[in-house]
Simulated assay, not measured.
Amino acid sequence: MEAAAEKRLRLLNADYREVAGREPQTFYCPILYRDEEVELCRAHIVNESFPESDRKWTIQRADVDSWFGSMFEADFVKLKYREKLKVLDVLADPELTRQLRPKFTLDGEEVEHYAVTGPVPDRFSPVLVDHESEPIELVLKVPPEELLKGERKQWDVAFEQDLRLPALVSLLKSAHLTLFQLVGYRYALSAGGRFLGRKVLGDFFDRTVELSRSDALLEARNHFKEFRNLVRPIVPPTTDLAGTVTDGLFHLCRYSGGLAKAVFVRTGEHLHTVLVPVLDNGETAARFMAFLDQSSVTFEARPARYMGDHWEVSPTSWEFEWPRANFERTWHRP
């Protein structure tokens, strides 16, 4: 590893030694909760593909970081395109077309298409789409005579993405690493840290890392459904919050059964809140999850910051409603 990473690793190992009271072997992973001889890497708290995202990073196992990155974050970063692109801009860019997969429909039925790269088979239809830079040459997999039928003429082209699952998993991981960055192993080895790190993220990795992508994603839908109420977008996103990893600000939230930290994760122009429970044991975790599953949830919140060796909590508080809903909605661009 480079010098900066070696220095960060030494600091983390010293922190682990102080908190856990024992010597680390290589690096005690705050997601798998194991210390093994494996490749380590610099892991960004917020995916660096988001423009103007915080560039802070920590040490992580390379296998864990790359697996979550390819399985979930590669799709989650598409959020940066929402409300930014027109469908013709996507069609004009081969890389955006690959990522966002725009669809043509004829009278509501999808018609496959591809960019012109050579002679067009007689059974397909070449089309020229106007674009401000230059015309876009495409091939629709539909016979030319089908396009000429007068009774079928309702065309549409759009791209849509369901980012609920990749957003949920990526934001849970970012919130966990945010608190690990700020508080170190005092957070990671706490009951709340083990809940989010081990139970939510680590257990899932161990069960699915050897599965195919399709099987792992199917398992993910079942596993993370239980934790869907931990994450919410802030709409509209406020500019007053830079993100907890940047300014150290979070909200300490009191509810009928205990406390939770509201961690803010900023991904470019979008802002999200992740609730991380402050737990004593597994029973309080179960009560917290049951509480979030209620139809109406109210928290009393106070702004707070971690100051390196202590928490500073504002005396000012207010109440807010935490909506019970499925992940962030599917987004669609016509």
Results as ranks from 00 to 15, higher is better:
residue 1 M to H: 10
residue 2 E to T: 14
residue 3 A to P: 13
residue 24 P to S: 11
residue 26 T to N: 15
residue 26 T to K: 12
residue 29 C to R: 10
residue 30 P to A: 06
residue 32 L to Q: 06
residue 32 L to S: 10
residue 38 V to N: 12
residue 39 E to S: 11
residue 45 I to L: 01
residue 47 N to V: 07
residue 47 N to H: 04
residue 53 S to A: 07
residue 62 A to R: 12
residue 64 V to I: 03
residue 64 V to G: 02
residue 71 M to I: 06
residue 72 F to W: 05
residue 76 F to Y: 11
residue 86 K to Y: 04
residue 88 L to M: 13
residue 91 L to Y: 00
residue 92 A to D: 02
residue 92 A to F: 06
residue 93 D to H: 03
residue 95 E to W: 01
residue 95 E to S: 07
residue 98 R to A: 07
residue 100 L to N: 00
residue 101 R to W: 05
residue 105 T to V: 05
residue 105 T to M: 07
residue 110 E to V: 08
residue 124 F to G: 09
residue 126 P to I: 00
residue 129 V to T: 00
residue 132 E to Q: 04
residue 132 E to A: 10
residue 136 I to E: 04
residue 139 V to G: 02
residue 151 E to S: 11
residue 152 R to E: 01
residue 157 V to C: 04
residue 162 D to F: 04
residue 164 R to A: 14
residue 167 A to D: 11
residue 171 L to C: 05
residue 175 A to D: 07
residue 181 Q to M: 13
residue 181 Q to A: 15
residue 188 A to G: 00
residue 196 L to Y: 09
residue 196 L to N: 03
residue 205 F to Y: 14
residue 207 R to V: 12
residue 209 V to T: 14
residue 210 E to A: 14
residue 213 R to C: 01
residue 218 L to V: 08
residue 218 L to T: 15
residue 227 F to K: 03
residue 237 P to Y: 05
residue 244 T to E: 05
residue 249 L to D: 06
residue 255 Y to S: 12
residue 260 A to T: 08
residue 260 A to K: 02
residue 262 A to G: 09
residue 268 G to M: 04
residue 283 E to C: 04
residue 285 A to K: 07
residue 286 A to C: 09
residue 295 S to T: 13
residue 296 S to V: 12
residue 296 S to K: 14
residue 298 T to S: 11
residue 300 E to I: 09
residue 310 H to C: 06
residue 317 S to E: 09
residue 319 E to L: 10
residue 321 E to R: 13
residue 323 P to C: 10
residue 328 E to I: 14
